[in-house]
């Protein structure tokens, strides 16, 4: 057998280069495969998320429809029935119209008037007509005025996005109205705040809402536990409005909402 003249060192370098190529190719193929799998998983996740969002939207829309229906029924049916009752009581003339009768008549009328006011308020809360007819800006202004009249909290409302608010579609306006209503409710019920500020500003077609109160604030770990804040999150998710909450015990509550979604023209 002839003696080999191969240089072992040349072979070692060639073997090293070959192994490097193999390993590098293996790693590159592996990375591409892993990233592709990740992309597929993300697509599936996004599809699931979109489906959840659609379901949420349907639930919220049907809730709104139901609120409108109940509000209308209350106003039209119950309201009309109470009005008829008041009329009947007024028309009723007893044989002897003594003082007892007059007192009875007065207290009945007072109770009926209170019932009518309550029914009107409930029906208004269930389906705010101002929102439907005059838009989000007026509806919020009205709500703030009612709260300010109560004297519990002073709300400063600055609307610098009136034009943009007029262009918002009704579902978006309703969602934002419900969110702000919930925030105002939280301030009144839980925050023990004296002042709150609500700002609407517009940057081209982007609506920026900032709400702040000087109440007791809350622990951010509890944010996802409250139903009210959960509803806020759901409604904002459905209309694609990113938001950021800044709060801590003793330091008030701040939320920044940015609506970049489609504007109805």
């Amino acid at each position: 057998m002839p003696e080999t003249t191969d240089n072992i060192f040349v072979l070692v370098i060639i073997a090293t280069a070959a192994i490097f190529l193999m390993v590098a190719s293996f790693i590159l193929i592996y990375i591409r495969n892993q990233n592709k799998l990740l992309q597929q998983r993300q697509q599936l996740q996004q599809a699931a998320l979109a489906h959840q969002k659609e379901l949420l939207q349907v639930i919220i829309e049907s809730q709104e429809d139901e609120r409108v229906r109940i509000g209308r029924d209350l106003h039209d049916d119950v309201g009309a029935a109470i009005s008829s009752l008041r009329l009947i009581i007024e028309m009723f003339k007893p044989a002897v119209a003594d003082n007892n009768y007059q007192a009875f008549l007065k207290s009945s009328k007072n109770i009926i008037d209170k019932m009518m006011t309550d029914v009107r308020h409930i029906s208004h809360n269930l389906s705010p007509t101002t929102l439907t007819y005059y838009g989000l800006g007026f509806a919020i202004e009205e709500q703030c005025a009612i709260i300010n009249q109560s004297g519990k909290v002073k709300i400063a409302f600055n609307n610098e996005a009136a034009e943009l608010l007029e262009k918002l579609s009704l579902p978006v306006s309703t969602a934002l109205y419900r969110v702000l209503e919930e925030l105002l409710n939280n301030t009144i019920k839980h925050a023990r705040a004296y002042n709150a500020i609500l700002n609407f500003t517009a940057d081209k077609n982007v609506l920026i809402i900032e709400y702040q109160d000087d109440g007791v604030g809350m622990d951010t770990r509890l944010i996802n536990k409250g139903i009210g804040l959960h509803n806020i999150e759901s409604r904002l998710t459905v209309i694609n409005a990113p938001h950021e909450i800044t709060t801590s015990p003793g330091n008030g509550f701040f939320i920044n909402i940015i609506y970049t979604g489609p504007i109805a023209i």
């Binding site: 070692v12 073997a15 090293t16 192994i19 390993v23 790693i27």
Partner: peptide, 14 residues
């Protein structure tokens, strides 16, 4: 680690 130990394998050996 994979690149180092696989590529140096023949150098280690020889």
């Amino acid at each position: 680690l994979l690149i180092f130990y696989s590529c140096s394998f023949f150098i280690f050996m020889f």
